[in-house]
């Protein structure tokens, strides 16, 4: 069951709700090199193979590029997201919408975790002046974020275990 709050436990998502915004975050420790996780997060066409929350991504995941993503959140909708920031093996930001009315910002972060783990954190803030009107139509992100994080962990650890 997804928790609501600001400090998600490993593999679980949490959402913080405010009047003009909502922020969902999931975090998980992964026993894999950040380069492997980064490869999974930046190879668009390969996403649907390992990530059960994404049905397709078209385009290149590279700075300044726009990708077209279909998610199980709403299979009829194509999310057009712009890749705005990328620091290899560390962080990446995708954005859509138009400030100040409505904007979504998704950030991925990789940091060194405990015991040689890589800590993966995924955060999405959606908000703006129009947010209160749209809020009730936006589905709960927590289950999908948890699924995303756990799929990533499973796939990255499988690759990490490959024979050298």
């Amino acid at each position: 069951m997804a928790k609501t709050g600001t400090n998600p436990i490993d593999g679980k998502a949490a959402t913080t709700k405010k009047t003009f915004s909502r922020t969902t975050s999931a975090s998980i420790g992964i026993n894999a090199h950040p380069g492997i996780i980064w490869a999974l997060l930046t190879n668009a066409s390969d996403f649907p193979r390992w990530n059960s929350t994404v049905t397709s991504i078209e385009g290149r995941i590279a700075p300044g590029e726009t990708i077209r993503l279909k998610s199980i959140l709403d299979e009829k909708r194509v999310f057009k997201l712009r890749v705005t920031d990328m620091t290899p093996e560390k962080a990446m930001t995708w954005q859509d919408g138009m400030a100040p009315f409505f904007k979504g910002v998704r950030q991925y972060q990789l940091t060194a975790g405990q015991g040689g783990q890589t800590r993966f954190v995924m955060t999405e803030r959606i908000g703006g002046l129009m947010f209160p009107m749209a809020a009730k139509h936006i589905p709960d992100f927590n289950p999908v974020f948890e699924q995303f994080a756990n799929d990533l962990k499973k796939e990255a650890e499988t690759i990490q275990k490959a024979k050298n």
């Binding site: 090199h33 380069g35 492997i36 499988t158 690759i159």
Partner: peptide
């Protein structure tokens, strides 16, 4: 090596 493992997988 990470990318090699990724490509291989």
């Amino acid at each position: 090596e990470a990318m090699v493992k990724y490509y291989l997988h």
